[in-house]
Amino acid sequence: MSTPASREALVRRLRDERSGRAARIAGPFTPILLLVVWEVASRSGLLDARFFPPPTSIVGTFADLVAAGTLQTHALATLSRVGVGLVLGAVPGLLLGIALGAVPVLRALFGPIFASLLPIPKIAILPLLLLIFGLGEASKWVIVAIGVFFYVFYNTMGGVLQTQPIYFDVAKSSGAGRWRTWSTVALPAALPSVFTGLKLSVGGAFVIIAASEFVGSRTGIGYLIWSAWGTLSVAKMYVGIVTISLLGYLAGLLVGLLERRLVPWSRQ
């Protein structure tokens, strides 16, 4: 075998391996496999079709809801609440996480406050938020934001605390002041952890918003599911469940995409 030929072959192989094309393309579609298994199990009687109707039988209900525009309206309501809540929670979570991670005095003073608030189940304060903010959008934004805040805050602070001290020494000896040190060392060092926090946030945000919409709302996928229970419409319930998990899944993908753009140095 001539060397150039084998070298080319190797280069091609490395390039293909690197991109992992097959797995990357197939990856997002594997959840479909779950639906197929479900379909078969339900039709064969392995699953009780009253509670677990085959996915194809839900498609009709799905189409009706889409045609009427109901599903889109509810999905959009949920999405916008999650979106606004994510931003409202993540930004202060990020800033405070960096501040408390980088400044021991702040951590000593205010760390216990956050630690004592953390164990409160976020959904438990919904009634209070409904009192304060009313039944409108604000109460939904705030409850999502609170949930998101803790995920992002603790992960960011942990990321900063785990930064090797040498990086701060480099900043100092390069003449970086406090703000420069935060923006050029503490923030990027924490970024992989920030994204861990964001991914957890997305999952948490959909849990919180669904629960909030059960009781405090007349719109959103959570409301759709809850009202389906009232009318014993199992198919509609499933449409809601599938829609909200799909939304959560896509939001997670989006965060992953953002991570690959913003954290190119982390190995996957």
Binding site: Q164, I166, V170, S174, T184, P188, A189, L191
Partner: peptide
């Protein structure tokens, strides 16, 4: 530094230019 302290989040070029950027 002994443990070199090259920032993992910056490219080689940006690592080298870091002190300039700080200023």
């Amino acid at each position: 530094f002994q443990e070199h302290g090259v920032f993992p989040w910056l490219s080689v070029e940006d690592n080298v230019g870091y002190p300039l950027k700080v200023r």
